[in-house]
Structure formats: structure tokens, C-alpha cells
Amino acid sequence: MSGQMKNYNKYYSYVRTMPEPIMPSELPKRKLNLPLIAKYAKEHGICFANMTEEEKEMILAKIS
């Protein structure tokens, strides 16, 4: 068995066990207002990446 065939077998076994892709229509619909989030983060002196999940959810709840 050649090295190419070994690589193919390893790849094929990985592809068979790979989960199904997530379609864009299956993703939750969220409206995101980046200027509003940036303004909130600037007012509170924090970076958006460092915001807690509760803060992010609070801002998203205000938007929708």
C-alpha cells in the first residue's frame, strides 16, 4: 500500500465521521447594531471582546 493510499484511507474515514454542515437558514436570526455596541463599550470603558455574555445579551435585547 502506497503512502498516497494510506492518506486517502485516513481522509476518507474522517469524512465519513464528519458531522453534517449547518446551513445558513438553520442559524438563529440576530440583528446586530455594531455602532450601538461600540458606543456602550466606550461609555463603560471596556473592550467588546471583554464584555460578559450578560452585557452582550442586554444590548441585543435593547436592539430587538
Results as ranks from 00 to 15, higher is better:
residue 1 M to W: 14
residue 2 S to H: 12
residue 2 S to C: 11
residue 3 G to N: 07
residue 3 G to K: 09
residue 4 Q to Y: 14
residue 5 M to K: 13
residue 5 M to G: 04
residue 5 M to P: 01
residue 5 M to S: 10
residue 7 N to R: 11
residue 8 Y to G: 06
residue 8 Y to T: 12
residue 8 Y to E: 10
residue 8 Y to D: 15
residue 8 Y to I: 10
residue 10 K to E: 09
residue 10 K to N: 15
residue 11 Y to S: 13
residue 11 Y to H: 12
residue 12 Y to C: 12
residue 12 Y to P: 01
residue 12 Y to R: 13
residue 12 Y to K: 13
residue 12 Y to I: 15
residue 12 Y to S: 12
residue 13 S to M: 13
residue 13 S to V: 14
residue 13 S to R: 15
residue 14 Y to A: 15
residue 14 Y to P: 06
residue 15 V to Q: 07
residue 15 V to L: 15
residue 15 V to K: 10
residue 15 V to E: 13
residue 16 R to I: 11
residue 17 T to V: 11
residue 17 T to H: 08
residue 17 T to D: 04
residue 18 M to Y: 15
residue 19 P to T: 05
residue 20 E to W: 15
residue 20 E to F: 12
residue 21 P to A: 07
residue 22 I to K: 09
residue 23 M to K: 07
residue 23 M to N: 10
residue 23 M to L: 11
residue 23 M to A: 07
residue 23 M to G: 04
residue 24 P to D: 00
residue 24 P to Q: 01
residue 25 S to C: 04
residue 25 S to W: 04
residue 25 S to V: 09
residue 26 E to D: 06
residue 27 L to P: 00
residue 28 P to M: 03
residue 28 P to S: 03
residue 28 P to C: 02
residue 28 P to H: 02
residue 30 R to M: 10
residue 30 R to H: 03
residue 30 R to K: 08
residue 31 K to S: 01
residue 31 K to Y: 01
residue 31 K to V: 08
residue 32 L to I: 11
residue 33 N to Y: 09
residue 33 N to S: 05
residue 33 N to W: 06
residue 33 N to P: 02
residue 33 N to Q: 01
residue 33 N to I: 08
residue 34 L to G: 00
residue 35 P to F: 13
residue 35 P to V: 10
residue 36 L to R: 09
residue 36 L to I: 11
residue 36 L to C: 08
residue 37 I to D: 01
residue 39 K to S: 06
residue 39 K to W: 08
residue 39 K to A: 06
residue 39 K to G: 02
residue 40 Y to H: 04
residue 40 Y to R: 08
residue 40 Y to S: 01
residue 40 Y to D: 02
residue 40 Y to M: 04
residue 40 Y to K: 09
residue 40 Y to Q: 02
residue 41 A to P: 04
residue 41 A to F: 04
residue 41 A to W: 03
residue 41 A to H: 02
residue 42 K to W: 03
residue 42 K to C: 02
residue 43 E to C: 08
residue 43 E to K: 06
residue 44 H to Y: 06
residue 44 H to C: 04
residue 44 H to P: 01
residue 44 H to Q: 05
residue 44 H to E: 02
residue 46 I to A: 15
residue 46 I to V: 15
residue 46 I to Y: 10
residue 46 I to C: 13
residue 47 C to H: 15
residue 47 C to N: 09
residue 47 C to P: 10
residue 47 C to E: 09
residue 48 F to R: 14
residue 48 F to I: 14
residue 48 F to V: 15
residue 49 A to W: 13
residue 49 A to K: 11
residue 49 A to N: 11
residue 51 M to F: 11
residue 51 M to G: 05
residue 51 M to H: 03
residue 52 T to F: 01
residue 53 E to W: 07
residue 53 E to P: 03
residue 53 E to G: 10
residue 53 E to I: 09
residue 53 E to Y: 08
residue 53 E to C: 03
residue 53 E to N: 14
residue 54 E to W: 07
residue 54 E to N: 07
residue 54 E to T: 07
residue 55 E to H: 08
residue 55 E to V: 08
residue 55 E to R: 10
residue 56 K to L: 11
residue 56 K to Q: 05
residue 56 K to C: 09
residue 56 K to G: 06
residue 58 M to I: 12
residue 59 I to A: 02
residue 59 I to L: 13
residue 59 I to N: 00
residue 60 L to A: 00
residue 60 L to P: 00
residue 60 L to Y: 00
residue 61 A to G: 01
residue 62 K to F: 05
residue 62 K to P: 00
residue 62 K to I: 07
residue 62 K to L: 15
residue 62 K to Q: 01
residue 63 I to L: 04
residue 63 I to Q: 00
residue 63 I to R: 00
residue 64 S to Q: 09
